[in-house]
Amino acid sequence: MDPVRNPFAPGAGRRPRELAGRQAIVEDARVAIERAMLCKPSRSQIFLGLRGVGKTVLLNTVEHMATERGHLTSSIEAPENKSLGEQLLPRIHQVLRKLSIIENAKGKTFDAMRALKSFAAAFRLEYGDMTISVDPEVGVADSGDLENDLPELFVRVGDAAKAAGKAWTLLIDEIQYLSEKDFAALIASLHKTSQKDLPVLFFGAGLPQVAALSGDAKSYSERLFHFPEVGALSDKDAIAAIRQPILDEGAMIDNDALAEIILKTRGYPYFLQEWGHQTWNLASDNKITLKDTQQAEATTLARLDQGFFKVRFNRLTPKEREYVIAMAQLGNGPYRSSDIADALGETPQSLGPRRAQIISKGMIYSPSHGDVAFTVPMFNEYLLRNLANLS
Rank of each mutant, 00 (worst) to 15 (best):
V4Q: 11
V4H: 12
P10W: 04
A12K: 01
R17K: 08
R22V: 03
R35N: 13
L38F: 15
K40N: 07
P41R: 14
L48M: 01
N60C: 11
T67L: 15
E68N: 06
S75N: 09
E77D: 14
P79K: 05
G85N: 11
E86L: 05
Q87A: 12
R91D: 03
L99P: 06
E103Q: 07
E103T: 10
D111M: 09
L116D: 06
L116G: 04
A122E: 13
G128K: 06
M130N: 15
V138A: 07
G139S: 05
G144M: 05
K162T: 05
A164M: 09
T169L: 11
I172P: 02
L178H: 12
E180Y: 10
D182V: 00
A185S: 10
S189W: 15
L207T: 08
V210R: 10
R223K: 10
F225P: 04
F225E: 03
A232F: 15
A241Q: 03
A241S: 07
L247W: 01
A251S: 13
K264W: 00
Y268H: 02
L272F: 00
W280Y: 08
L290T: 00
K291C: 09
D292L: 04
Q295E: 03
A298I: 08
L301D: 00
R303E: 04
V324A: 00
M327W: 01
M327L: 12
L330G: 01
G331K: 07
D342Y: 08
Q349T: 15
A356R: 11
Q357M: 15
D371Y: 11
F374A: 01
N380F: 04
N380T: 03
Y382W: 09
L383P: 03
L384H: 02
L390W: 00
